[in-house]
Design a protein around this nucleic acid. Structure first.
Lengths: 193, 193
DNA sequence: CGCATTTCTTAAGATACCTTAATTTTTTTG
DNA sequence: CAAAAAAATTAAGGTATCTTAAGAAATGCG
């Protein structure tokens, strides 16, 4: 039950809830336990849930034409993970979702979340704000990905996501940053000297 | 009045309107004429309108620490342009909006659009869908910006935005793609041979 | 604990892209 | 239309990043 607190702790600073609303929110979400490397969504699946990470670490990634993995996002406690387009439009997912660490995810079905929006208006506000932030963060990442050197991007990643860096293998950080693991290694060598 | 048709033609395929709703929508928007190079929004301004391009071509861009311009987006007839984060959160804009060609923009004030959402529900649906598409397009651009070579990005840009390519100077395309004008020039030379 | 697997490092040669600077071409404007 | 301004091209030398390959270090598991 502890992990349900985690959910409320992330919603309430943005959208305060009454006691009844809190109950309604918690009732809508179902916990799911994941082992390390377990998949939460495959490419081609239709994403049926919004997903909140109560514990652990996940990643979303896609496979390019050469079968190479490219990481779009990491998520840890308090983050939401999804193939949002698949969820919103109910079309087959482009991305995979996988646990990088053992994890507990709280899931809410699409129809139930829609119902929740009607019964608990603050939740709609909460998601609209999350969506805005995601859009802006994405825009920033686009720009920075194109203009900054790999070294600059890595330094920024470290500052912004220090905890994530310590929890995922280095080659995944490289994938997220859009460089080869070899190059990231030489960057680190250069920085730490 | 012709340009108001342009607006309806872009809304109705996504969100059909009754005659009364059409009237309400049109009444909320105000046309604004722009000369070439005229600014529509400055960095630091708070964006007070949603903006639809009825005619012409605009761009959004930002200035980096060295005073260099970096283009985020172009827009032509039927597109929406804004610093969305500034508009949504009513904080100072990070980006500039400028006409690349003489343009006519249809603007609706934030408070009026909110009122319109209540009176004309299909409009809310229309904007939610637009927002989703924007987020996904942005996500795709992030990935492609990091993994693809400048040549691949240019070829894709050409296919996807052939009309825009013919309407904006080449150095702006380079800026959008994240390369120097010189390099884009050599890419073009290579391709056309 | 020790073997197998995964992850990280190192280095050399190749490629993509940048910087600078000069020149040519195109567009704008009086 | 001519002059001025803006945009595009070309080329040379430099830097960032990739590819490949091999070995070292760390981690997972029986």
């Amino acid at each position: 039950m502890d992990y349900k607190n985690t959910l409320l702790q992330h919603i309430e600073p943005i959208a305060p809830l009454s006691e009844a609303e809190r109950m309604a929110v918690l009732a809508a979400f179902q916990p799911k336990k994941l082992k390390k490397k377990e998949m939460l969504l495959f490419k081609g699946d239709i994403s049926q849930h919004m997903r909140f990470i109560a514990k652990g670490c996940l990643r979303s990634y896609y496979l390019d034409d050469n079968g190479q993995e490219h990481i779009l996002q990491f998520g840890i406690e308090g983050w939401w993970v999804n193939d949002l387009y698949s969820y919103l439009t109910q079309t087959p997912a482009e991305y995979f979702l996988q646990a990088v660490e053992p994890a507990i995810v709280l899931q809410v079905q699409r129809s139930q979340l829609e119902a929740l929006f009607k019964r608990v208006p603050p939740m709609e506000r909460f998601f609209r704000i999350k969506m805005q932030n995601a859009y802006v963060a994405q825009q920033e990442r686009t720009i920075k990905g194109m203009r900054m050197t790999a070294e600059q991007r890595y330094i920024e990643f470290r500052e912004k996501y220090r905890e994530i860096e310590q929890r995922v293998p280095q080659y995944m950080v490289a994938s997220y940053l859009g460089v080869t693991p070899e190059h990231l290694s030489t960057i680190r060598k250069k920085i730490n000297s």
